[in-house]
Structure formats: structure tokens, C-alpha cells
């Protein structure tokens, strides 16, 4: 299964959520890989705490591969190469966790050629043979990268794929996320131009809300009643807005609560962070865990 992670705006939590989902999926016993297609700023290595590729790899990164400058992209075994103590041993029963970093100093694609699409198809085809889940961070907004993966998936019709659109729980984000999917020259438009079936593609897209502060969250305990009432009103207004924009509950795969650790640092939330050092919230880890299951659970993906 290929899973494309996209967001309309930058800084929504796409990378942090995507990497945590992949990590949880590996803990659940699956072989997984994460492809950093965010060519303008490939920083997935930092989230996995692999300092050697924190800002991409100096050699054999994904951009170089796609541009035809190296025959195969580098693979990083996170269980072996992470600097974080808690990640460096593969937990019993966990699957493989592999990162394909972008190229250090790389830039966004500025054109799409047939060769690039061909290389992308080869890459996806091979990874899908050996990994249960391949998460591809497609970067933010309308980009050649998004076009690239839309073009590539048309050429491999039997390979299963899904899209996750990440957004924050604000007016602007909700409208933008809808625009990215259904707006002019959005995913559905461009996808159908490349040869995807519009309805089929729509069924393969779900939204994920990131850094959500629930009105009844523990963080809000100290608030005044007026503040709480205002938040509650905002929340229901947003829910109404989301429903109107097709970003509502039915199209949502899950939401990740706002977490203090993630607010301060982009990282994987391990069970140790929750149970031993207690710096992260159990709800956050549980939400990642849940999403990691839902992503392959067909009942969560039945037609809208």
C-alpha cells in the first residue's frame, strides 16, 4: 500500500504525523518505509533522529534518484541507524522501519519529464513488493511532486494507494484542505486529467486533523468560563464549516491531539515518552496507533 501525505499549507504537522503513523505501523508488526518527497526541505531524518541524514543525505537521495543521477536511492534502516537509544533496537515483533531520505540541499522539482515518472514508478513498484506500507511525504500545496505521484499511480493501476490530507483545525486550514482536494487544479482535477477516475480517486482521499485542542482537553482546565464557551462556539462553527467543505467527520480518518512534546520538538512519540519519562500524552500515542491501524482498515475507507 502506498500512502501519500499532503497538506495545503506548510507546517501543518504532515511530517510529524506521517512519521509517527509509520513508526506505529512498524510496531504493529508490519514492514514499513517512509519516503521523503518533500524535496524543498527534506527533514524526515531529523524526526527519526538519524542525524547523518537530518537534512537529507549528501549522496543517493531521492531527488538524485528521480533526476537519474544515481541508480538506486539510499535506504536508512532506522532501527540500526537512529541516534535515539529508544529507537536503536528493533522491538520484538516489530517490522522493518526504513527511511528513504531526500537529497541534502535539494530543491522542489521544477519540471516533470517522462523519465522522472518512469523512475518514480520503478521505485514505488519495488518498494510495494517488499513493504506493507510505504508513506510518501509529498510536501505542501500544489507542486510538481504531487503531479509526479498522480502521474506515477496512473501507470500502476493494480498497486493500491491512498491519500492523507493533513490540516489544522482552523478556518483557513479547513478551506485550504478542501481547495487542495476539490478546488480548481486540485488533486481531483489534476488526477482526472492524468487519467484517474475522479470518483475512485475521491474515495482514496481522507483528511487528518493535526494538533487538535478539544474543548474538554486537560490543557484547558485553567480557562475562564467565558473562554471555554468561546472555544466551544468556535469548535462547533468549524465543525459546521468542515461539513460544508467535505472535510467533515465522514471524510476524516482521524485526529491527533495537540501534544506538548510535538509543540516543542519534531520527533517520534515512543511508549517510553508516554510511560517512563511521561513527557508525552498517552492520548497522542494512542491516536497515532489508531491511525496506523485505520490506514489499512478497509472499513474506514468505504465509499463516502
Amino acid at each position: 500500500m502506498l500512502v501519500f501525505a499532503i497538506s495545503d499549507k506548510g507546517g501543518t504537522g504532515r511530517s510529524v504525523t506521517g512519521t509517527n503513523i509509520v513508526y506505529r505501523h512498524a510496531l504493529q508488526g508490519n514492514d514499513v518505509c517512509y519516503l521523503d518527497f518533500d524535496f524543498g526541505s527534506p527533514t524526515a531524518g531529523a524526526i527519526f533522529s538519524v542525524s547523518a541524514v537530518a537534512r537529507g543525505t549528501p549522496e543517493n537521495g531521492l531527488h538524485e534518484y528521480l533526476r537519474g543521477e544515481c541508480p538506486q536511492p539510499r535506504r536508512v534502516d532506522v532501527w540500526a541507524e537512529s541516534d535515539r537509544e529508544g529507537l536503536r533496537t528493533r522491538p520484538p515483533g516489530a517490522g522493518r522501519l526504513v527511511l528513504l531520505p531526500g537529497s541534502e540541499g535539494g530543491g522542489e522539482l521544477s519540471a516533470l519529464t517522462d523519465e522522472i515518472v518512469g523512475r518514480c514508478v520503478q521505485l514505488f513498484g519495488r518498494l510495494e513488493e517488499e513493504f506493507d506500507l510505504c508513506m510518501i511525504d509529498v510536501s505542501a500545496g500544489r507542486s510538481f511532486t504531487a503531479e509526479l505521484v498522480l502521474a506515477a499511480t496512473v501507470r500502476m493501476p493494480a498497486v493500491p494507494f491512498r491519500w492523507l490530507v493533513f490540516h489544522r483545525w482552523t478556518r483557513q486550514h479547513i478551506i485550504a484542505a478542501d481547495g487542495l482536494v476539490a478546488g480548481a487544479d486540485g488533486l481531483l482535477d489534476v488526477g482526472s486529467r492524468f487519467g484517474h477516475d475522479r470518483e475512485d480517486l475521491r474515495d482514496r482521499i481522507r483528511f487528518v486533523r493535526t494538533a487538535v485542542l478539544e474543548p474538554d482537553a486537560a490543557e484547558l482546565v485553567g480557562l475562564r468560563d467565558e473562554q471555554r464557551a468561546w472555544l466551544s462556539a468556535c469548535d462547533s462553527e468549524l465543525r459546521e464549516l468542515a461539513g460544508r467543505h467535505g472535510v467533515g467527520r465522514t471524510a476524516m480518518l482521524g485526529k491527533i491531539p495537540l501534544d506538548p512534546v510535538l509543540q516543542w520538538r519534531e520527533q517520534l512519540i515512543t511508549d517510553e515518552d508516554v510511560l517512563a519519562s511521561k513527557i508525552a500524552n498517552a492520548e497522542t500515542a494512542a491516536a497515532f496507533d489508531e491511525l496506523a491501524k485505520k490506514i489499512v482498515d478497509d472499513s474506514a475507507w468505504e465509499g463516502l
Binding site: 514508478v121 520503478q122 519495488r126 513488493e129 513493504f131 500502476m156
Partner: peptide, 24 residues
């Protein structure tokens, strides 16, 4: 060789739903 194997694996006659994932 890898590309030749790709050629087989990408055949439209295959359903791509292999019973398990395994490296080459």
C-alpha cells in the same frame, strides 16, 4: 536484471495482491 524483473512484476495480467511482502 532488476529492470527485467520489474517488467514481469508490472505485467497487467498480475493483480499485485501478493500473499505476503518479501524482499528480492
Amino acid at each position: 536484471s532488476g529492470r527485467f524483473l520489474d517488467l514481469v512484476q508490472a505485467s497487467p495480467l498480475l493483480d499485485r495482491r501478493a500473499p505476503f511482502k518479501i524482499p528480492r
